[in-house]
Amino acid sequence: MNATIYHNPACGTSRNTLALLRHVGIEPRVIEYLVTPPDRTTLVRLIADAGLTPRQAAREKGTPFAELGLGDPGVTDDQILDAMLAHPILINRPFVVTERGTRLCRPSEIVLEITPPLQSPFVKEDGEVIAPSP
């Protein structure tokens, strides 16, 4: 199965998602989106394919979200997208794309909705165990 992960190696959820992909036998194409941000068309597609709005896909914690006024009720989706393109740290992560769909994998085990089933337990960085579904 082919997969692409929009990854931030400094993020524990993103690292867990990448490790989980590898645990189920997928070696994904890794895009460090802070180094190589998606263009507007790709970003819009990722967000829509994941069933989200730009506001739902925006990261607030550890970003300039508040100082840019993005939480104000009158801010449009286009303004949020413009801010994400100007400041890629505002793009929540990790997005994963496979033939089975696109997901914003927060928490990391959401990736299992679009991968082959988990065959053996997976241990996250914090020690949490994700068990295969019965």
Rank of each mutant, 00 (worst) to 15 (best):
A19N: 09
P121G: 10
P54G: 04
A57V: 01
I5M: 10
V30C: 10
P94V: 14
D77F: 02
I47R: 02
L43V: 11
E27Y: 07
K61Y: 07
R29F: 09
D77T: 01
T41V: 12
P94N: 04
I31P: 04
R22D: 08
A66S: 09
T63N: 00
V123I: 09
E99Q: 10
C105N: 02
L104A: 04
H87C: 05
H23T: 01
A3I: 03
L20K: 14
P73H: 11
L20D: 09
G69A: 13
G101C: 04
T98G: 03
A50R: 00
L70V: 11
T53S: 01
H87Y: 03
T42M: 13
E125K: 13
R45M: 04
P121T: 15
R103T: 14
L68T: 03
D39Y: 01
A48C: 11
T36I: 09
D39Q: 07
M84V: 05
T42Q: 14
P88I: 07
S133A: 11
D78H: 05
L70K: 08
I130D: 08
P117G: 06
D82A: 06
S120W: 12
D77N: 05
V35I: 14
L112P: 13
A10V: 09
Q79D: 07
R93Q: 10
L112H: 10
R22K: 12
S108D: 05
E67S: 13
R15S: 15
G25M: 13
E109F: 12
D82E: 09
T4S: 05
R15P: 15
L85D: 04
G12L: 08
P9G: 09
V97I: 07
R93K: 15
K61Q: 12
E113G: 14
I47H: 02
A3K: 05
L112C: 05
V24E: 12
F65Q: 03
P73D: 14
L34W: 11
E27Q: 12
Y33C: 00
T17W: 08
G62N: 05
L52H: 00
M1N: 09
T36D: 04
N92K: 15
D49W: 11
Q56F: 12
A57N: 05
R103M: 15
F65Y: 13
P132Y: 13
T36Y: 12
P117M: 06
R100V: 08
V35L: 09
L21Q: 05
P54I: 13
R59Q: 14
T13S: 06
A83D: 10
G101N: 06
E60F: 03
M1I: 10
F95K: 14
V129R: 15
R100G: 07
T115A: 14
D126K: 15
P121F: 12
F95D: 05
I130S: 09
D82T: 07
R59N: 05
P64L: 11
V123Y: 13
L43T: 06
V129C: 10
